[in-house]
C-alpha cells in the first residue's frame, strides 16, 4: 500500500515538474528566440519588461489570457475551439516517454528519470506527432476562412509527408539499439553517440523534424507573406497562444529527441544528467533559431519534392546500408 502510494506520489511530482518545466521553458524559448534573433539582426530585442526583458513572456501571456476570444461567424465552433488544445496536448504528451536523466536513488528506491518507460516509446512519439496534425488541419478548416484553409491543407500535407522520412530515418537507430524504448536507446549510446555512426540519419532527422515543427525554411502553413497567418489566422487571445505554445513545446520535444536519439541523451561528463539533457535541447533549439534567421522559405511543391524525392530515398538507402553493416 505504502509503496503504491509513494510510487503514485513520485509519479505526480515528476509529472508536475516536467509540465511546469516545459511550459516555462516554452515561454522562455520564445524570449530566447526574440533576443537571439535580435542579436543576429544587430538589434537588442525586448529589454523593457523586466531586466533584459526577462518578464516579456509573462507580459505576453497575461495579455493573451485577458484578450477577447473571437470565433468567426460560420466557424465550426466545437472543432474551432478544440483544435489549439490538440496541438499543445499532443506536444506535451510526447514528453511522457522521453528520459531526461539517469536513475535516481531516493529512500532506497530506484526512481527512473522518465515518466513512463514504454517499450514502444518511439512509436508512441510518432503516433502523437501524427495526432498533432489534426490540430492544424482541423483548426484551419474549422475557421471558415480561405487563408486558414490553405494553411491547414499545407500543414496536413507537409506533416504527413515528413513523418515518413522522420520515421524511416530512425529505423537504423532502432536497429543499432535493438529497442523502441527511448531509455534503451540512450543506454545503447554509452560508448559513443549515434550521431557518429549515423550522420546521414541525423541530417535527415533534423531536416524532417524542422519540417514537422513548421519553422523556416518549412513554415509554409503559416507563411505570413503568402497566407497572412495561415491556419491560425482566425484565432485570437489564448487560443492563438496555445498554437504558439504548442509550437515551442514541439521545438523542445524535437530538441529532446535529437538529444536522445543521436547525442547520447543525458550522458556527459561533469554535469548531472538533466543538466546535460537541457544543454543539448538548448543547443538544438538555438540552431533552429539560427536557421530561421538565415534561410528563405521553400515553395510548397519544392518542399514536397525534397521530402519524397530526396529524404525518403536517402533514408531507405541508409536503412539498407546499416542493415548490411550489422549483418557483416
Amino acid at each position: 500500500m505504502l509503496t503504491w502510494s509513494l510510487g503514485f506520489l513520485i509519479l505526480m511530482v515528476k509529472l508536475g515538474a516536467v509540465l511546469l518545466f516545459l511550459l516555462l521553458a516554452a515561454a522562455y524559448l520564445v524570449w530566447l528566440e526574440r533576443k537571439f534573433l535580435a542579436r543576429l539582426q544587430v538589434r537588442y530585442g525586448p529589454n523593457r519588461a523586466g531586466k533584459y526583458g526577462l518578464l516579456q513572456p509573462i507580459a505576453d501571456m497575461i495579455k493573451m489570457l485577458t484578450k477577447e476570444d473571437t470565433i468567426p461567424e460560420g466557424a465550426d465552433r466545437v472543432i474551432f475551439l478544440l483544435a489549439p488544445a490538440v496541438v499543445t496536448v499532443t506536444a506535451l504528451l510526447m514528453f511522457a516517454v522521453i528520459p531526461f536523466g539517469g536513475d535516481l536513488s531516493f529512500l532506497g528506491k530506484r526512481i527512473p528519470m522518465v515518466i513512463a518507460d514504454l517499450n514502444i516509446g518511439l512509436l508512441f512519439v510518432f503516433a502523437l506527432s501524427s495526432l498533432g496534425v489534426y490540430g492544424i488541419a482541423l483548426g484551419g478548416w474549422a475557421s471558415n476562412s480561405k487563408y486558414s484553409l490553405l494553411g491547414g491543407i499545407r500543414g496536413a500535407a507537409q506533416m504527413i509527408s515528413y513523418e515518413l522520412s522522420l520515421g524511416l530515418s530512425l529505423v537504423p537507430v532502432v536497429m543499432l539499439a535493438g529497442s523502441f524504448s527511448l531509455v534503451d536507446i540512450v543506454r545503447a549510446q554509452e560508448a559513443y553517440p549515434f550521431i557518429l555512426v549515423q550522420p546521414l540519419a541525423f541530417v535527415i532527422f533534423v531536416i524532417s523534424a524542422m519540417a514537422e515543427s513548421k519553422r523556416i525554411p518549412f513554415d509554409l502553413p503559416e507563411a505570413e507573406n503568402e497566407l497572412g497567418a495561415g491556419y491560425h489566422t482566425e484565432y485570437s487571445g489564448i487560443r492563438f497562444g496555445l498554437f504558439f505554445l504548442g509550437e515551442y513545446v514541439n521545438m523542445q520535444v524535437l530538441g529532446a529527441l535529437v538529444a536522445v536519439l543521436f547525442l547520447g541523451g543525458w550522458s556527459g561528463p561533469f554535469l548531472s544528467g538533466p543538466a546535460w539533457f537541457c544543454i543539448k535541447i538548448l543547443v538544438v533549439a538555438l540552431v533552429m533559431i539560427w536557421i530561421r534567421g538565415t534561410l528563405p522559405r521553400l515553395r510548397y511543391d519544392q518542399l514536397m519534392a525534397l521530402g519524397w524525392k530526396v529524404l525518403i530515398p536517402l533514408a531507405l538507402v541508409n536503412i539498407v546500408v546499416t542493415g548490411a553493416v550489422i549483418l557483416i
Partner: peptide, 22 residues
C-alpha cells in the same frame, strides 16, 4: 529595424492577422 528597434518595447511581433493584433 536595427537603429530604432521597437522590439525593445515588446512591440516587434507584427501580426498579419487582425485577430491577434492589439
Amino acid at each position: 529595424t536595427s537603429r530604432y528597434d521597437l522590439a525593445r518595447f515588446g512591440a516587434e511581433v507584427l501580426r498579419a492577422s487582425p485577430r491577434q493584433a492589439d
